[in-house]
Structure formats: C-alpha cells, structure tokens
Design a protein around this nucleic acid. Structure first.
Length: 845
DNA sequence: CTAGAGCGCTCG
DNA sequence: GTACGAGCGCTCTAGC
C-alpha cells in the first residue's frame, strides 16, 4: 500500500469493534472460534483467561467464562442451566450477548446467548505464548491442526489484541498493516466500518472501484420498518382485560416468551402525584391489551358523587398482586418507553420492576444528535405511524381532563397502542444496537441508570418553605423600590420586565448609543449591553439589579415553593436521561441543576435546601474534570503532568503562555488563561474569546495562536475530531458513546456550530459518562450506610447523610467517583474529587 | 384563550 | 454570525 495512504487516524475506541477488527484481519477465520478455542486451550494448559470489558457485571462472569464457553460450544445452555450454573439470569445473559456483538444463534428461552460472547474473552499473553509453542501437544486433533495451521495468523491477532490491551484501543491503521492486506478484504472492511473518504482514496490508489457505503440516513431507513410479517397497527383490535382469567392468560404468554412491553396510564405526569389508572401490555406486534383499574364514572367537574369507579374494571390490588411476580421476575424482560416513569409509579405501589429495556434509551444510544426520542417521533420515523394524540383524549389547557376520566373504550385504544408501538420499536432497535456498536453504551451507561435516577427522584430533597417565603417577600419589596426608581429615571411608567419596552425607552426615547436590533427588530437589552450602558446612565444599572431580583424571585423562591410535594415536604426533580445529546442529564420540574451559586445573593437560595434533623448534606464534585479529559484525549504531556503534580492548571497555562513564572502569577493573567482553557473545551474562536474577555478580536486571536503554539496537541486533537466527524457522521466519548453530527459538513454559519459542538462533545460527553458510571456503582458502594444520593449537577453529587456517617460516606463515595473511569478506560490523569458538608446546600458546597 | 417564539438569566 | 451543554419565566403575537 502506498505510503501516503496511511493516515494516522485513531481507528476506534470501541472495544468490541477493535476486537472484531483484530479477528476479521484473519482471513476466513471466525472470531468466535479463535477465541473459544484459545480460551479453552489456555485453560487446558493451565493458562489464565482475562477479559477486556467496561462492564462490571460482566467481570463477574469472567471466572466462569471458560466453562461457559465449553457449554456454549456444545449448545447445552438453557435458562435453568444458565441460572444454576452461573447464577446469571436471562436478563443478564441478554447483557452479555449484547456486549459481545453479533449473536450467532439464539437458544430458545434464553434470548441472545451467542458464541460471540467469547469475543470478550482474550488470552493473557504469557499463556498464549506457551499455548502456541505447545500447539502440537494438544490432544484434540481438530484443535491441534487448527492451531498449527493458523499459528501465523494468531500471532498477528495477538499482536493486534496486545495493542488493544495497553491503553484502551488506541491503534492506527499502520498497526493493522502487519502483513500485505488483501485489497478487496481491506476495502470490504473499510466499507463495513463506514470509512467513506479513506476507502475511496485507497480504492483510487489501487485502481479499484470504491465500495458503496450507504449514507447513515439511508442506512437508518433500511434498518427501520422491515417487518413484513407484522400486522398493521389497529387500535380497534386491542383487548380490554376485565376478568382475572383473561389476565392470567396474558401472564402465561409473557412467562412463556420471557418478555413483554408494558405501559402505565396515570392521572399526572408528576409521578409523585400520579394515581395509577391502568396498565397496558403487548406480547407481540399487534397483540396488546389494556387493564383499566382506576377509571371514574361521572363528569370531572362534578364535585360530589363522581368518584365512583367505572364498571368493567378489575380491583387494582388483585391485578398488582398478579403482576408482581412478572414485574419482579428476573427471567422476564419488561420493555417500556421511558421506563423510569413506570418504575416510579410501580414503586409507589411497593413494586420493583426488573430487568428492563427502554426504547427511549435505545434510541438515544443509537441516534443522539440525529432526532428526538419521544414515542411520537420514533413511531413516525420507524413505523410510519402516527399514534393517537393524547390530546384527542384529554383535551388541552384549562378544560383538560385526567386519564381516569377517559371512557374505557377510548383508553384501550390509546394505551394498548403505546405498548404495541413500544414493542415494535424494541424489535427494531435491538439489532441496531449491535450493528452500531453501541450496545455497551446502552448496557452500561443507560439502562442501569434508570433505577438509580428513579430512587433519587423519589427521595427528593428537603426544601424549607419558610426560608423561601421570607426571601420572596424581601425580593418583592426591593423590586417595588427599584421599579419606581426606574420609572422615574425613564420619565414614564413601563413594564421593566419587557425587553421590548426597555429597548424603546433606552434607545429611542433616551437616545443612548449602542442600540443594536436583533433578528426580530427589537433592541438587544441583555446584561452585557446594559453593563456597557451603565457607565453613562443610572437606569440600566437599576434594571440589572431589578432583573437579578426578578429572576431569583420568579424562577427560584416563588416557583420552588410550588414544587414542594405536600406529602413528603420535599422537592422531587425529574432527570431526563436523553436530555442532552452529549450524555449529560437534564433536570426538569423543577430544574435543580441551575440553582444560583455565582452571586452572593443568589447563593442564599441554597440555604433553603436542607437535610433532615440529624443529617447533613454532603457534596462531592469532580475538580476540573473536563480539562483533565482534554489533557488525556488530546495527549498533552505538559497538561497531564500538571494534573499529576496537582498544580493550579489555569496558572500553569498562564505561565506557559505568557512566560510568567508561577510565583509571579497575577489574578488577571490567570483569569485570561482560565477563559482560554474553557474556550478550548468549547471549540475556541477568536470572536467568542474576545467577547468573553472583552478584548479586541485580534488580541484574542493572538492568545489562541500562542496557545496552539505552546500546546500543539490541542490543535491536532481539534482537527482530528472534526475530520473524524466528517468521516463518520459522529464523534464519540472515551466510553464509545456516539454523538451524531449531521451538520458537520453544512455550509455557512451552521458549519461553525457543528464544528464546535463536535469538538466539545467528546470532552463533555466523557465527563458525563464518568459521573454516570459513578452513580450506577454508588448504590452498591454505600449500601448499609445511613445516606441517600439526592442530586446530580453534572460534575457533582449531593448526598443526605446521618451526621455520624459522614466521614465514611465521603471516603466511599470519593473512591467510587475517582475510580469511575476504571477499568474500561485508563485515564492518564488522576480524577480528583472535592468534598463539602453542611446543614444546607450553601454550606455543603 | 392557548401555543409557541424570542429574550434573558440561571447552572456546569 | 459564533464560544459548549441545558431549563424556565416572562412578554408578545399569531391563530383558534
């Protein structure tokens, strides 16, 4: 192959894919067989089998791995056998299969056990050497011949795997060229991996036709609605369950096949307030039912005598008792769309639900950045079907009714359709996860987080209403004073809360300079504009003060009171797992991830977040996690070393850039360096930095140029990330989470946005993955301690802890957080977690 | 009367 | 025309 065709692009950071690559390089040899054979023979020869995986649960299987391989080779696995032999339930086995990549064949009753599980088992090299040396001694003729015949290829495979093993999977195409590749095979491989540009260049150089690689969108369409055998979605055909015998029939079917799609209908979107109204089940596409439990007779506005149950329903407790063994049976997979909601509803009735799959999260793992993950979107996109709009049942606005007032026949169609759609989506997404190599992400970063978040949300955080009420009153007073002051300065009365009116006052009536109209023709009156104006006039300064108070009062001290649950006296936020494309969570109803902290006055709102008597709040937060990740992924030695040495990273950056010795550092220089460091994470631009630092653009550009000069790896990282995005249509985190970048090759200003987002996503996303891993491991780690994990704020976890256990909690939780990247990713920088504690959140921070 | 866009502000 | 990622309250307008 010509020299210039060996670009130094990182091939992959995905364990499964990397391993497949290694195996596929060995012509005509199945990955399964290589690994299964080697694993078994290594054991025969007294070698050890090790595993490379990011999944802790899977690690537990390692000890039994070899034995499991034997069983699988002989196709002797059944559900009971698996459970008995390995203490693993089929739900777990689904994990294992999924992690391993393609399944070879499914064994009835234990969906997804495939021999490729073996693909995760890799021999330790010492024993492999010995194995190869002594291949002739192996007794089974077939294995002996195989090993001898393929020894050369195995050597190569080993070398590739070895590269794979050092630090996770960081080898280049050069590393793959350990022999003359068969051009067709190489092109086929590149096509399969969807290396568009590269495969075309290589094909050109070799005088061959470039392989046809479907565009991602076309691929998605091809993957999508291929279900000729499925009946259409016909809401009329669904069953209403109104006697226990019928319910028993459904349960029997579910038990026999080991999975069911499930959906709950309630009276509220707020799970803490919601009453269960009915449950729908789907066992096959087109086969779904609805079990009404809490539908009411009478009009919703009839205050008296309207709360009688409608006839034709089953007693709720009877149904829950019957479903309990199904919901809690770890051999039955429960499939839902946004299962956290249903899990919380069931938890309200004392029921656990596990194991689960969640189509919303599957879509997120597959398509983050491409489209939304709500059921309506997914149904339309993958099933070409518009579901019955909930509004058609409930109405909207003031006249909206709750689901318990929906007539049974209408409810059956709507509710059962949801379960049917969910099941169909599951059938579609499941194989897609493998093909896109994001099963590990789904299995280890998405699905296990559901019960963790559900628990945190149900715990809630105690908020002191009196504190908030007092603050609201104080703010109202101050605002009233400011308002009359502002009106006086303006010469007339107007709505201070209206940017439009304010702009007219400032720029038209008072004639101040600097009025710039935005897209809609209104003057911009943002804080930065008002701050500039404040030097010439008093009014804008007063407006800024008013706005701060207005924000604090309306968004925080007022609104937060409305979110205190009357039953628990606590505030129960809801985390949206698919909220941010990067893998971050979003917090809603209320958002507890943007409680003020930067201003002194705002920070006092945190005093209202308190611990129960005898407890304190403890906050643990990652220090500079995104910069640490940047240092790692961009391989900046000086930054990595600075973090290892525990240096002040912004000061160090400043010192490096401006040639200021560390002991002569000034706050101003450090501040600028800090802004640059953040800018780098955000996909720096001269314009953005200039605006942030309020310096001329040329000066900002000078800073950036000097930064890139001193840290050349950063520029390389940025360029590589962007070209990776252009090549693949996505970027990925250290843990293999993919964030799609559909507009990376767009023209015009959108290209800039897409470029910066692509640069930022692996950094922000890797940090998000790390804290997710910590959260998932946390319940087991703190078990037995009198504490609860309450909140997550991107790089921070907040606990409520009994006073006498605080030391222990900090120790344990810090360990989990600092080790959260291990063992999947070996970070070359330490993760540092700071801790604080106090009677309220202000003190804990 | 309701829904949605736009603005502005809060956080990491 | 631009720093990355979010959610929410208010105002204003379009449309039922």
């Amino acid at each position: 192959m010509p020299e210039d065709l060996r670009p130094q692009i990182p091939l992959t950071r995905d364990a499964t894919r990397a391993f497949n690559i290694a195996c596929e390089e060995i012509e005509g040899y199945e990955a399964d067989d290589i690994i299964a054979t080697l694993a078994c023979q290594a054991r025969d020869l007294g070698g050890r089998v090790t595993i490379i995986s990011s999944d802790k649960d899977l690690m537990q299987l390692v000890g039994d791995g070899v034995e499991m391989l034997d069983a699988m080779k002989n196709r002797r696995i059944d559900v009971d056998g698996v459970r008995e032999k390995f203490g693993v339930d089929p739900g777990r086995v689904v994990d294992v299969q999924a992690l391993a990549g393609d399944s070879v064949d499914n064994i009835p009753g234990a969906p997804g056990i495939g021999i490729k599980t073996a693909a995760l088992l890799i021999n330790e090299f010492g024993s492999l050497e010995e194995l190869l040396d002594r291949a002739e001694e192996i007794t089974q003729p077939k294995r002996r011949e195989t090993l001898i015949e393929k020894r050369e290829q195995i050597e190569m495979s080993k070398r590739l795997v070895q590269l794979d093993c050092k630090t996770p999977l960081d080898f280049t195409l050069d590393d793959l060229e350990v022999r003359d590749p068969d051009p067709d095979m190489l092109l086929g491989f590149l096509a399969e991996m969807e290396f568009r540009t590269l495969s075309k260049r290589i094909a050109d150089a070799l005088g061959k036709d470039a392989p046809v690689i479907p565009e991602p969108t076309a691929q998605a369409a091809e993957d999508a609605p291929k279900a000729p055998d499925w009946p259409g979605i016909e809401p009329e055909a669904y069953t209403r369950v109104s006697d226990m015998a019928t319910l028993d029939g459904w349960i029997a079917t579910i038990r026999a096949q080991g999975f069911v799609a499930i959906d709950t209908e309630t009276t509220s979107l707020n799970e803490m307030q919601a009453d269960l109204v009915g449950i729908s089940l789907a066992t096959a596409p087109g086969t779904a039912c609805y079990i009404p439990l809490g539908h009411k007779d009478g009009a919703s506005d009839d205050l008296f005598g309207s709360d009688t149950l409608a006839s034709g329903q089953l007693p709720m407790q009877d149904v829950l008792d019957a479903l309990k063994p199904v919901l809690e049976d770890d051999a039955i997979l429960k499939i839902g769309q946004n299962m956290k909601y249903d899990a919380k509803i069931f938890a309200g009735h004392g029921l656990k639900i596990a194991p689960i799959d969640d189509t919303m999260l599957m879509s997120y793992a597959l398509h983050a950045g491409e489209h939304g993950h709500g059921m309506d979107t997914l149904s339309e996109r993958y099933l070409s079907h518009d579901p019955i709009p909930i509004k058609s049942l409930l109405g909207s606005g003031k006249s909206a009714i709750t689901f318990d007032r929906v007539p049974l026949d209408e409810a059956v169609k709507y509710a059962a359709e949801d379960a049917d759609i969910t099941l169909r989506l599951w059938h579609i997404f499941k194989p897609q996860l493998h093909r896109a190599r994001v099963t590990t992400v789904y299995e280890t970063l998405e699905r296990p987080l559901v019960p963790v978040l559900a628990r945190m949300e149900r715990h809630g955080v105690k908020v002191d209403r009196e504190t908030l009420r007092a603050m609201s009153g104080k703010f109202a007073q101050k605002m009233a004073g400011l308002e009359s002051e502002i009106h006086e300065l303006a010469g007339r009365s107007f709505n201070v809360g209206s940017p439009k009116q304010l702009g007219e006052i400032l720029f038209d009536e008072m004639g101040l300079d600097g009025g710039k109209k935005g897209k809609t023709g209104a003057y911009a009156t943002g804080a930065d504009v008002l701050e500039d104006l404040a030097t010439e006039h008093e009014l804008p300064a007063r407006v800024l003060d008013w706005r701060q108070l207005s924000k604090l009062k309306s968004t925080y001290t007022d609104a937060l009171q409305d979110h205190i649950d009357p039953d628990t006296g606590r505030v129960h936020t809801s985390y949206v797992q698919t909220g941010a494309n990067t893998g971050r969570l979003a917090s809603t109803d209320p958002n507890l991830q943007n409680i003020p902290v930067r201003s002194e006055e705002g920070r006092r709102i945190r005093e209202a977040f308190v611990a129960e008597p005898g407890n304190l709040l403890v906050s643990l937060d990652y220090s500079q996690i995104e910069l640490r990740i940047l240092a790692h992924v961009a391989q900046i030695d000086s930054l990595k070393q600075a973090f290892r040495d525990g240096q002040d990273i912004h000061a160090m950056t400043a010192s490096e850039m401006f040639n200021v010795p560390m002991d002569e550092m000034t706050p101003e220089v450090r501040r600028q360096a800090k802004a640059i460091n953040f800018g780098v994470i955000y996909g720096i631009s001269g314009f953005g930095l200039a605006r942030n630092l309020r310096i001329p653009r040329s000066e900002a550009q000078g800073f950036i140029d000097r930064y890139f000069e001193r840290f050349p790896g950063i520029k390389d990282y940025m360029d590589e990330t962007v070209s990776f995005a252009k090549e693949h249509g996505h970027v990925q985190t250290l843990f293999g989470r993919k964030i799609h970048t559909p507009e990376i090759s767009a023209k015009g200003p959108r290209a800039g946005f897409a470029r910066r987002a692509a640069i930022n996503a692996p950094i922000q996303g890797s940090a998000a993955d790390i804290i997710r891993r910590a959260m998932i491991r946390m319940p087991a780690a703190i078990e037995g301690l009198p504490c609860k994990m309450l909140l997550q704020v991107h790089d921070e976890l907040i606990f409520e802890v009994a006073e006498d256990s605080i030391g222990r909690l900090i120790e344990v939780a810090r360990d989990v957080m600092q080790g959260a990247a291990d063992p999947a990713v070996h970070l070359e920088v330490p993760l540092v977690v700071d801790a604080g504690q106090g009677a309220n959140w202000a003190k804990a921070h």
